[in-house]
Amino acid sequence: MNSQSPLLEVRNLSRHFGAVRALEDCSLVVRPGEVVALAGDNGAGKTTMIKAISGVYAPTSGEILIEGKPVTFSSPQEARELGIETIYQDLALADNLTIGGNIFLGREPMRRAFGFLPVLDRKAMAKAAGETMALLDFHVKRLDAPVSNFSGGQRQAVAIGRAVYWNAKILIMDEPTAALGVPEQRKVISLIKSLKAQGRGVIFISHNLQDIFAVSDRIVVLRRGIVAGERTIADTNHDEVVRLMIGG
């Protein structure tokens, strides 16, 4: 068991939408170098949980702490500034841009041409892209290629690299292996293991129990807006997790 102080704590968090109680008194802890899987059937509350953690929804009650300090977010940008990055299934990449272009999208570095004309510093962007991909042990030959040329696993690497470059401490990964072939799934699992080795915390949302058991340290199961159970991966199995998910 990882005994380090938590990067993230969610304490007794509830989120109501009128009479609908999407989350009720839910708690979650993520420590450095730990992958915590968030599992549950459709409508269990997984999306509401990650949107509350990432600043999309304000909790109805409860609190969120980062490195022991209570925080409140009025926007996802505020969550990102405190080190929480969410990588959604659609990745939100600009297909026509390079790796560097996607990493710096909206935050492009500039240099002066002819002593006064501001232009994009493409060299600095390419250098940062290469270093960031190498940090993830992911090497691409053409840093000048648009990401539309890349496979699903490579595109996941770009999205993860963007979060790593901007110093994310906690990465929320929403179905990162969905719609990928087996070799590409293995690449993504390898990327998540490299994040663990760097001491980052990962919340891993997936319907694929095989992937959950391959990469996670603990699993938190949601059912109808409550925490139905929490287990260390070493102390559970697929059948028990399914029983927790369906209430059997």
Rank of each mutant, 00 (worst) to 15 (best):
S3A: 10
Q4R: 10
L7Q: 03
E9T: 01
N12Y: 05
L13F: 03
S14E: 03
R15H: 12
R15P: 05
R15N: 03
A19G: 14
V20I: 14
A22G: 09
D25S: 10
S27T: 06
S27V: 06
L28Y: 02
V35K: 11
A39L: 15
A39V: 15
D41V: 13
N42W: 07
G43I: 00
G45R: 14
K46A: 02
T48V: 08
T48C: 07
K51E: 05
K51D: 05
A52K: 07
A52N: 13
S54H: 12
V56D: 02
Y57G: 05
S61D: 10
G62M: 04
G62F: 07
G62T: 01
I66D: 04
G68Y: 09
T72C: 14
S75I: 00
P76S: 07
Q77P: 07
A79E: 02
E81T: 13
L91H: 11
L91W: 08
N96P: 07
G101E: 00
F104C: 11
L105G: 02
G106E: 02
E108P: 10
R111S: 04
R111L: 13
F114A: 14
G115A: 09
L117K: 09
V119I: 14
V119E: 03
D121H: 08
K123W: 05
M125C: 09
A126V: 03
K127P: 02
A129T: 01
T132F: 08
T132K: 09
L136P: 08
F138E: 07
H139I: 13
K141M: 12
L143I: 07
D144A: 14
P146K: 14
P146R: 07
V147P: 10
S148G: 12
N149A: 15
F150M: 15
Q154N: 15
V158C: 08
G161W: 09
Y165K: 15
K169C: 04
I170V: 15
D174Y: 08
A178D: 00
A178F: 06
A179W: 04
L180P: 12
K187G: 12
I189C: 06
S190C: 11
S190F: 10
S190L: 09
L191N: 04
K196Y: 08
R200E: 00
I205L: 04
I205F: 03
H207G: 08
H207Y: 06
N208W: 09
L209R: 11
I212Y: 01
I212H: 04
F213T: 00
A214N: 09
A214K: 09
S216G: 09
S216L: 11
D217R: 12
V220F: 10
V220C: 14
L222Q: 01
L222S: 08
I226H: 14
I226M: 12
A234P: 10
T236A: 12
L244R: 08
L244P: 10
G247I: 05
